[in-house]
């Protein structure tokens, strides 16, 4: 019993907005996230204004303190830290959002099919997701991140392309991340398919796909949005950990996670290098979690508190 019982969209949108606006932290989170995205994706503008770029090495000003030239100082190779953080932010935000949406799409599809058709496939799916929940995730992700794409038969042109680490991490995270949404959607689909308006559509001769698309899916949008928002934070954490361990986003592409890899060695000489990227991760993840919480109260007020 989730948003399915929700009233019609027109008036409920206003109610939802009012409930959301009450959540001051969630509103603040929207602003923070908007600001972060704006900054991250205007990195080229900053590069233009500062007359440098995030990859320019300057060995004469290594580990420089903040100045008008380098707003947050420089790293061990004299690269502008501020610009590198912005570039890293682009990657981390992009990976988080893309993987979350991909996981939501996969999860929605599988959950819908399982919940609507039920039967053996459904029973198998539930066992499977139970099994996935019961596994130590990170060690397995590390294995997945470390496997050799050549041996999977992926053409070298793709396997060695510059952005492969980006695609790989999105794929890995989406592949393990779909279960939350799938279970959520499955449960709701199971209850909605028993409703009389679904029966009515069947009597009229509607096919299964039409029923899922027109009658079931629209009622699931709210919980899916909530779960997806909450998962963005987790995914950014996961990406940063894998990148930090050297298995996620590979240099020279900067990400908040791999910026910390180098900073670890310099922790005693330049602790601020390690502080900035981690703090930005914390801020972003926190904002997504507050946002998800606020959306849950706004869109799905009756939902039992599910775990993210």
């Amino acid at each position: 019993m989730t948003a399915a019982a929700a009233a019609a969209p027109a008036s409920s949108a206003r109610h939802a907005w009012r409930r959301f606006a009450r959540h001051r932290l969630a509103v603040a989170s929207v602003l923070v996230l908007a600001l972060l995205c704006l900054l991250a994706f205007s990195a080229p503008l900053f590069e233009l204004a500062l007359g440098t770029d995030s990859e320019r090495v300057n060995l004469f000003s290594r580990l420089a303190p903040p100045s008008a030239q380098a707003l947050l100082g420089t790293d061990e190779l004299g690269r502008d830290m501020f610009l590198r953080l912005l570039e890293g932010g682009q990657v981390s935000l992009l990976v988080g959002l893309t993987a979350a949406v991909a996981a939501a799409v996969i999860g929605t599809f599988i959950g819908l099919v399982a919940g609507y058709f039920g039967g053996r496939f459904d029973a198998f799916l539930m066992r499977f997701t139970d099994g996935i929940i019961a596994l130590p995730l990170l060690p397995l992700l590390i294995v997945l991140a470390a496997i050799d794409l050549d041996k999977l038969g992926i053409p070298a042109a793709i396997a060695n392309s510059e952005n492969i680490s980006l695609y790989r991490i999105i794929l890995i995270v989406a592949l393990v991340g779909w279960t939350t949404v799938a279970r959520l959607v499955r449960g709701a689909a199971l209850s909605i398919r028993e409703r009389e308006y679904v029966q009515a559509a069947k009597v009229q001769g509607a096919g299964s796909w039409r029923i899922m698309r027109v009658h079931i899916l629209p009622n699931l949008i709210s919980p899916i949005i909530v779960a997806t928002t909450l998962s963005v934070g987790n995914i950014i954490l996961l990406e940063s950990v894998l990148s930090f361990l050297g298995l996620g986003i590979q240099p020279p592409i900067p990400s908040w996670g791999n910026l910390l890899t180098n900073a670890q060695a310099l922790i005693s000489t330049a602790p601020l290098l390690a502080f900035y990227p981690g703090f930005l991760i914390l801020l972003t993840v926190l904002a997504f979690n507050f946002l998800g919480d606020g959306l849950q109260d706004a869109l799905d007020p009756r939902a039992v508190r599910r775990r993210a």
């Binding site: 932290l25 934070g233 954490l237 940063s240 950990v241 930090f244 910390l260 900073a263 670890q264 922790i267 005693s268 602790p271 390690a274 502080f275 990227p277 981690g278 703090f279 991760i281 914390l282 993840v285 926190l286 979690n289 507050f290 919480d293």
Partner: peptide, 26 residues
């Protein structure tokens, strides 16, 4: 609630580095 949210959102490896920086180095 705020503390709990912060704890959920904190990257563990970064927290570890900050701990080392504070309690071991400084």
């Amino acid at each position: 609630n705020l503390l709990a949210f912060a704890a959920i959102s904190i990257p563990s490896f970064w927290l570890a580095l900050m701990m080392i920086s504070l309690f071991s180095v400084t």
